[in-house]
Amino acid sequence: MLEFIDKYLPGFLDNLPLLPPQASTVAGDVDLLTLVWTLISFAVGTLIVVVMIYLAVRYRRRAVNEVGGAEVHAPMVEIVSMLIPFIISMGMFVWGTKVFVDLKRPPADAVEYFAFGKQWMWKFQHPNGLREINNFTIPVDTPIKVTMTSEDVIHSFFIPAFRVKQDVVPGRYTTVWFEATQTGQFRQLCAEYCGSEHSLMGGIVTVLEQDEYQAWLNGEQFERTTTPSSSGEQLFTSLACSTCHLSGDSNRGPALHGLPGSEVQLASGETVIADDAYLRESILEPRAKLRQGYVPLMPTFEGQVSEEQLHDLIAFIKTIEPESSSREGSVQVAESNQTPGVSNAGGGGR
């Protein structure tokens, strides 16, 4: 549609754009859905308004004592006026839900990024640990999944050009995914009112060609950064998590090897999946979902670790290798293969 308007009304879109740039894989789908809905609405709306004006003119009052005709019974009109909106809206519901599911379900090979919202800035973290503030540099044609949380109030991560939006909620992780199809710079905005500088809490998303992105990541301008998992490993030691959660002969805390993603039997009898949210909660509030067979010994870490540190810890926990190596009391940290060029501080025993 954009090309069409640009062809016949050159310059129009520059002054009065109707659509934001279509720069992600889902943008076209969302626009098509909106366009069809708009056309249906225009058709229905115009029809009703035309009928309304026609009736108001055709049956206008011609004498002060004139009254209308007898009551009209037309059950077909009622049936049709219920059936048509029902059929149209249910059809659009199915289509809209399909687009929504595509928006919500990231592909399995999506590269994982992390973002924090806080009053009034956005912090982004690349898989190799590189951090940016209010600038988010990503490669084109690469599915990207961003896990987000807030350090204070609710924010909302919004990139109009990608047609994606996801609230960023303190105390929990939410995720958004997208795949940019165009290089260039796009606005990233906060869509949930978050206090004084809400309208200035925006950033720029810079989409680079994949090789440019790699070059940018390895660029001289950045100091060598540590990966989230290696920062997490240091924390794991300094917070003394390793005392109870690594040594095979201790029953004080469950071993974490192979935990992420597995099913956990709770003391309450329930089972939960050990996803990021579970790991996060168990660090902050260990008693909330106590694992079966353990006593609540662990202190709470609420207020002692920041959201970024939590993210690092979880990143580290995911790299702990299964049982076999743990018996020796050592930990192997999996090599991060997403970002060649940045070596991983490998796992040493302790």
Binding site: L55, A56, Y59, A74, S81, S89, F93, F100
Partner: peptide
């Protein structure tokens, strides 16, 4: 989403009925 869209049905009933009321009426402006 589905429940919300169902509200289109009673709402459409109202709009259609209001409009149709003018049919054979004596419409003053």
């Amino acid at each position: 989403s589905a429940l919300t869209m169902l509200i289109a049905v009673p709402t459409a009933v109202k709009i259609i009925n209001w409009t149709t009321t003018m049919y054979q009426g004596s419409v003053s402006w």
